[in-house]
């Protein structure tokens, strides 16, 4: 399995030369009257794992949903592979090669596990095959015929991640994949993220749990009140621990 994914490392990763794959500038977003993002700026370089940290309600989920075109109104600039996506409908953004795994997981109750897995259409070559996904998450193979929402929380999270690996999207937006899960499952998800990174995926990860974030990420952006308050490289995390505690209020 590791080899199956590793083979793809050789494939050219757009932006792996250190150029940003995703450039977010002056991103604003609204839910009705309430103005939630007030000019978010950050970059993600191809092949990186970057986290968005921040307190509850800071705007992390909204940032991902805005990149994905899923908020009612947004402004600013989101460049993906150098092309502007801010004006596109979310289905067009997905077809550019960005895939989204929502915080609430979004497993469909009226679909069985395999139907859930096969739901997102393939947008590019180079996605994982169904067998590779089952090898990554063996539980899913055993439960392929079960109703999607009958799975345990951990299995649902694996399904939510697994199904976007098929699409060939190289940029993954993962919203709190470890939320509410047992430590062993958190570790399994951590290993999965590390493998995906090793095989060239670029990952933007929302996390509350910065101890987990520190084990997988290259850089962290701190979101506060709908803005980026700070950027911390993972190797400087220890030196910035006090500052981070202040930001997160832990």
């Amino acid at each position: 399995m590791a080899e199956a994914i590793a083979e793809r490392t050789a494939a050219a990763v757009p932006g792996s030369d250190g150029a940003p794959l995703l450039v977010v500038r002056g991103l604003n977003a609204w839910y009705g009257e309430s103005h939630v993002l007030h000019g978010v700026d950050f970059d993600v370089i191809g092949g990186e794992v970057v986290t968005l940290l921040g307190r509850n309600g800071a705007g992390k989920t909204t940032t991902l949903r805005s990149i994905m075109g899923m908020v009612p109104r947004r402004q600013g600039s989101v460049l993906f592979e150098g092309a502007e996506t801010i004006g596109l409908a979310s289905n067009r953004i997905a077809q550019r090669g960005i895939a989204y795994c929502p915080e609430e997981r979004g497993i469909f109750a009226s679909l069985d596990v395999e139907e859930n897995l096969l739901l997102p259409p393939v947008v590019r070559d180079g996605g994982l095959s169904v067998d590779e996904i089952y090898a990554l998450f063996p539980n899913l193979r055993e439960r392929r015929g079960s109703q999607g929402t009958k799975l345990s929380g951990g299995e649902q999270q694996m399904l939510a991640i697994g199904r976007i690996l098929r699409t060939g999207a190289r940029m993954l937006l993962l919203d709190e994949p470890t939320e509410g899960l047992a430590p062993v499952i958190v570790q399994q998800i951590g290993r999965t993220i590390a493998r995906l990174k090793a095989s060239g995926f670029t990952i933007l990860l929302v996390e509350q749990n910065f101890r987990f974030a520190a084990t997988v990420a290259d850089r962290h952006y701190v979101i506060e009140h709908g803005r980026v308050a700070d950027m911390i490289r993972n190797d400087q995390l220890d030196a910035n621990m006090n500052k981070l505690h202040d930001y997160l209020g832990v």
């Binding site: 075109g69 899923m70 289905n91 997905a94 009226s110 699409t167």
Partner: peptide, 24 residues
């Protein structure tokens, strides 16, 4: 397969669209 798109979009249209399907 077509029906699975329909069932999924019945539950959560915005997520199905965010997977790249032209829900409108």
């Amino acid at each position: 397969k077509l029906g699975s798109y329909l069932r999924a979009a019945t539950e959560n249209p915005s997520l199905v669209q965010a997977f790249g399907i032209n829900v409108p």
